[in-house]
């Protein structure tokens, strides 16, 4: 996905997509980390995002309106290990697409294997590692999907600030998540041969497939945390379910881009989540950081179902492993 973004920058008529995060909610001590919309988070759980929809003006030249609709299914194999599948359907409005009359289809399929390395309830800290794969040629040719697979080893973390001193009690609802990945294409170059239908001339395009550093995260302020762990102000219940959030998802070219005019691209996404017992909803703005990332502010929204809470004894529990460890009474 990210390499495709770089190619969009390079060749203009190619396509670019807003990366959609593979997020899952996570509970670490007092802290509830919600599923994020754009930047992958450390959560490992049984969940279903149905759907995540985004509408924005992409980075193509000329820029066109793009609608992405993604479904994300996360399934725990063990309590600490999950597999995530995320198909995304894209529609490019006119004058997008190879013929300028729009295009639709699935992007290359993205999968993630994620493992929780460390969890510290006292300090509301969690670390996970994962391998994200975007599989070659699994999407629509009309979207000019990558013809190579991209593997991205990724590190995720989450940290809540509930351990701050009393003097800054108001800051305890803050939490951050972070994601750092290194995207490695399965082929270092892509060679495309084109035959002119009129003249029969053959042209060969040989372009490198750059490697990228993917980085981002979120800053969140949890009103549920404020009510249940810091100070219950007696606010209306609706406000006690809100988590204002700012996400960021960026990609920086690292290697194999000699001769290419590549820059860091990405989006900043301010918005708000509403979290309930069984689901959450979220909406965020999509603010491109430069022209190579898009041309105007878009929007992304998500309905996210907590399968572990909806179906705790069937599809919402790990495939392997015994019952959840009981609490130890004091």
């Amino acid at each position: 996905m990210l390499t495709r973004l770089a190619r969009a920058v390079l060749f203009g008529p190619a396509l670019a997509f807003v990366p959609l995060g593979a997020g899952a909610h996570e509970i670490v001590g007092n802290r509830f980390f919600p599923a994020t919309l754009v930047a992958d988070d450390p959560g490992i759980n049984d969940e279903l995002s149905l759907p995540t929809a985004s509408l924005f003006k992409n980075s193509d030249i000329p820029s066109v309106n793009e609608l992405d609709i993604a479904v994300e299914f996360s399934k725990r194999i063990t309590d600490d290990f999950a597999l995530i599948v995320q198909p995304t359907w894209t529609h490019l409005y006119v004058p997008g697409g190879p013929l300028g009359n729009g295009a639709s289809g699935f992007q290359n399929l993205e999968t993630t294997a994620k493992y929780r390395l460390y969890k510290n309830p006292e300090h509301e800290f969690v670390v996970s590692v994962g391998l994200v794969a975007e599989w070659a040629n699994t999407g629509a040719k009309s979207l000019s999907v990558d013809t190579f697979t991209t593997y991205t080893p990724t590190l995720y973390f989450g940290k809540g600030f509930g351990d701050l001193p009393d003097a800054v009690w108001w800051a305890r609802p803050f939490a951050v998540t972070g994601v750092f990945g290194y995207a490695i294409p399965s082929r270092s170059r892509t060679i495309t041969t084109t035959v002119d239908p009129d003249s029969g001339d053959v042209s060969v395009d040989d372009s490198p497939n750059p490697r990228f550093f993917n980085w981002g995260g979120s800053l969140q302020y949890s009103m549920p945390y404020m009510k249940t762990a810091v100070n219950d102000f007696g606010l209306p219940d609706f406000f006690n379910h809100l988590i204002p959030i700012v996400e960021a998802s960026l990609q920086t070219p690292v290697s194999n881009f000699a001769g290419l005019d590549l820059k860091t691209t990405g989006t900043i996404n301010p918005g708000v989540l509403w979290v309930g017992d069984y689901f959450q909803v979220g909406v965020e703005a999509i603010v491109p950081v430069n022209r190579q990332s898009g041309t105007s502010v878009g929007v992304i929204a998500q309905l996210h179902l907590y399968l572990d809470d909806l179906f705790p004894t069937t599809i919402g529990k790990p495939i392997f492993g015994g019952p959840v460890t009981p609490a130890k009474p004091f």
């Binding site: 001590g29 249940t228 762990a229 572990d308 809470d309 705790p312 959840v324 009981p326 609490a327 130890k328």
Partner: peptide, 14 residues
């Protein structure tokens, strides 16, 4: 520190 009837464990303090 509590265990819900569906075996989810949660904990916290205030």
């Amino acid at each position: 520190k509590v265990l819900s009837v569906d075996t989810h464990t949660t904990e916290g303090n205030f």
